[in-house]
Design a binder for these strands. Structure first.
Lengths: 151, 151
DNA sequence: TGACTCATGTCAGCATTCTGACATAGCGTG
DNA sequence: CACGCTATGTCAGAATGCTGACATGAGTCA
């Protein structure tokens, strides 16, 4: 290519690689979660609640990287199907703390096993040193992108 | 957490970190592309065409991590607005090779500058060694997830 | 107390993407 | 040539997520 610095070389672009990896991860997760009738966002919500019971709709949304509105729709479905519960009244403010039901916990257990296999597949391809480097790299990227600095 | 191995610790999950980084990258790209009236997929398509002129709809879709159908909708818009051109008849098979118009090239130039600032922000937070490690890590993840091995 | 700011839950409409389906073109095999 | 297989472009409907908007509750400050 005689483009030189006229374009961003996708072959060596960190951003492109990041998107490619993320896309592959999502596809792999969808593949193992589909047999369980669960989507990635669905699973993310349950896993978040398992680790931090009482999270509100907005907090879950931030944790799953979707909007409050999208998470609200999901939560209503999960509530209707008996996977999570929310009090009718907010104990403080407007935030409704959500919690997993026993059914939700059982459903999550299967999903976690499936997702863990994907996670292990990723980790298995790297040495301990490489894993540590991967963590550092990703955290560094997240940190640098968090800063406003865009304009 | 007394959960032990009952769940995937999101704080230390490589997959979660990957999703977080990818989400941050997308948000940063959207932020710099919005003033230019361009979406990430929009930009990806143009950048792909700049580096590899003549790519077909399906090839562009794979490169931008969307379906053929979605890319087709985008391409029709880009064609209508004069950013890309496609022959009316396929020179071979059914694949229609797409190419940037001068207008498309001009539009891309601004977008590339904007996206480059994001890329540099990520790279700037890492040493050369860390950058190399990041490339290796991501490529390793992509490779391991590509393998079917899911079930 | 009152005004202001911020975060939250929720409703409605819109945009984007995906899934499903179909016809067509090339390629290999017999 | 006929057949099956794969890849492609395209249309239509459905699912998913997002933006915009509103009312409510808590904290801050005068």
């Amino acid at each position: 290519m005689s483009q030189g610095d006229a374009g961003i070389d996708l072959e060596t672009s960190l951003g492109y690689l990041l998107k490619e990896a993320s896309s592959a991860l999502r596809a792999a997760m969808e593949a193992v979660l589909r047999p369980l009738g669960m989507t990635v966002t669905h699973y993310s919500c349950l896993e978040l609640l398992a680790q931090r019971p009482g999270l509100s709709n907005s907090e879950l949304a931030r944790g799953a990287f979707v909007t409050r509105q999208s998470m609200n729709v999901l939560l209503q479905t999960l509530e209707k199907d008996g996977y999570v519960t929310r009090p009718a009244e907010a104990p403080v403010g407007k935030a409704l703390p959500a919690r997993l039901t026993p059914r939700g916990r059982r459903s999550l257990a299967k999903a976690t096993a499936a997702v863990r296999s994907v996670e292990l597949r990723m980790l298995g391809a790297m040495s301990e040193t490489e894993q540590a480097a991967a963590y550092r790299s990703l955290k560094s990227m997240i940190g640098s992108l968090r800063e406003p600095g865009g304009g």
